[in-house]
Amino acid sequence: MVLTARHDVRGRRRAGLDWGVRRVAKPVVFLACLAPLAWLGWLAMAGGLGANPIEAVVRDLGSWALRFLLLSLAITPARQALNLPVLMRFRRMLGLFAFFYASLHVLAYVGLDQFFDWTAVWEDIVKRAYIAVGLGAFIVLLPLAITSTKAMIKRLGGRRWQRLHTLVYPAAALAAVHYVMMVKADLREPLLYAGILALLLGWRLVARVRRVRRGPAHQAWPGSSARTSVKPPETAVATRGR
């Protein structure tokens, strides 16, 4: 009896949290993710983008694409460090917003900056390495956006889906390099982004090395565990529950 009651409370709490995430937190985060675009649109209409508004639009959209990429990559470390599994439920949205801003960035470059002069765009890709690298980042993001739906996760199977989505690491690296290469001399800002990315990727590397050292049972990454058949030692099971 006591046990059931406690379960009931837990269940209700979980349902409440779920409702809160779905009906409150997610819409709020969604709108917050649109704020940079709204702000840019406002500045564009109010004439607040300075002397070269097209350059300002292209750069701002690119910066936000990179910021959202970093945010989506920060979810896993933050979730584990803060012990907040609920954060996981915002990862897809942030990733898709990264793709959204990256698409607008590419569109603004092709449509506003070059005005669909495909010859010029092609010349840029071939002759200017930073454009090619940026395009590479966008192309790598494409399959990730396409396979972001629940149906696609089911179709691919969790493990294969997870492996496919490790492509976000090279995509983010290419995006950061694209920014570093674009800048003429003052590398502070692009290196700041590259540094944050290095931290986020480094954290994963350290976590993985630790897991491997402690034994195969700790491999929490579904995509990487080919050796899960090994029986976990008792102590490991105990610590896992934390």
Binding site: A44, M45, V57
Partner: peptide, 18 residues
């Protein structure tokens, strides 16, 4: 642009001049 802003139309980015 001001009229568009007040009526809630978003778009036509990047044609503003100082």
């Amino acid at each position: 642009a001001a009229a568009a802003a007040t009526t809630g139309t978003v778009g036509a980015v990047g044609v503003a001049v100082p």
